[in-house]
Design a protein around this nucleic acid. Structure first.
Lengths: 201, 201
DNA sequence: GGCAAGCCATGACAGATGTCATGGCCACGT
DNA sequence: ACGTGGCCATGACATCTGTCATGGCTTGCC
């Protein structure tokens, strides 16, 4: 019997996944949480074998939660389940020590298989996404560029971003310009969109 | 026995919801689709009593699908189930003839109740969201302003938007300026973000 | 008809944005 | 030690954006 932990901020989806997985005779949902920062404690106290983690969660995102699990509780494997098949997410999830990565587009029948593969010590990765990840590659942005672009993503002006990042306005403009060039965008807003789609923020 | 149609583009969520609802003795999932433009046909051929519609779907969004159902097949009630609790969505869904509106944050137990209420001819609406919808009110944007802002949301330059909308650049700037003013934003990007959060696009 | 209100459309102008050239600093290979 | 390449930081300049004033058009209301 494989013991499962579910982490997803949408209660309806969490409950529905629990119902789906409980139908399998060899699977058992032993814990459910709605925040990333509750994953570690819940995994410890429930003795889960596999944790299904959504990427988008309050408190701590699913990738950071996977990293924490891998470090503190390596016996509990992490399987990241996400809405958005952004290539950068896959790479970051694997770097964080996740054993599997599944998009919510995949047929329901394959989820239980992915859980079993992960529990057996194998990897479970969406093949299409793996190819896309290779094609897109790692983020071309430097740390400062990423940071400034993330601040600008909120829609604030250069002056606001400069104040938040403790940089001069000219420097902020320069980083944004570099980010625009590297993403192949023509405006700041387009650069934000492209970076988000690729999971670079 | 209430007959259900599920429409959600994420196969995993769709399957999981089906598993959850099939656990209820008085509910039966008779059809599942992954695109909005397949809803009407599926509802007709399956004779569903209630349709659970996600808002974000390819082909036709859930709100438009609800409108089509209401017009062509009034015997089948529409219950909109969405990830994003954007106030504008609720208003537009009700205008389109939907009988209920549920956010995916709500506890799983309440979904079956919402289905039963809708089937009984009652309305099922998230109370918090109803209040938020009243507070935000309808979109302050005119049709042209909304259209131009939606085009600009992609991150394109004014010249590109002007070409797509067959307007002069000055006019496009004027609409964007009006949209920025009405949303209380300070930049175009911020106006896009605010409009999206309120479901005005 | 006369009039006000609202939407559509445009151009001129001030201010914000994106590009470029420049320079300091650090790590790396020779 | 020296040069190379990469990242960080800044200011000057051309371009683009957002604001404003203006006018035509339709709609609804005395």
């Amino acid at each position: 019997m494989i013991r499962l932990l579910l982490a997803d901020d949408q209660a309806l989806v969490r409950g529905a996944l629990a119902a789906l997985l409980d139908l399998e005779s060899d699977l058992e949902v032993v814990a459910q949480v709605g925040r990333g920062d509750e994953v570690l404690d819940a995994a410890r106290s429930s003795g889960a074998d596999v944790a299904l983690l959504d990427v988008e969660m309050p408190g701590l995102d699913g990738i950071a939660a996977a990293a924490a699990l891998h470090r503190e509780l390596p016996a509990c494997r992490a399987l990241v389940v996400t809405t958005f098949g952004r290539p950068g997410y896959l790479r970051r999830a694997l770097d964080a020590g996740a054993s599997g990565f599944v998009v919510k587009d995949t047929p329901a029948e394959q989820l239980a298989d992915a859980v079993r593969r992960v529990h057996a010590g194998l990897r479970a990765v969406d093949p299409d996404l793996a190819i896309a990840s290779l094609a897109v590659g790692a983020s071309p942005l430097t740390e400062r560029e990423r940071h400034v672009l993330a601040l600008a993503a909120g829609g604030g002006t250069v002056a606001q971003v400069a104040a938040e990042a403790f940089l001069s306005e000219g420097t902020v403009r320069n980083y944004l310009s570099a980010a625009i060039g590297k993403t192949g965008a023509r405006t700041r807003a387009e650069a934000v969109r492209i970076a988000q789609e690729n999971g670079w923020l």
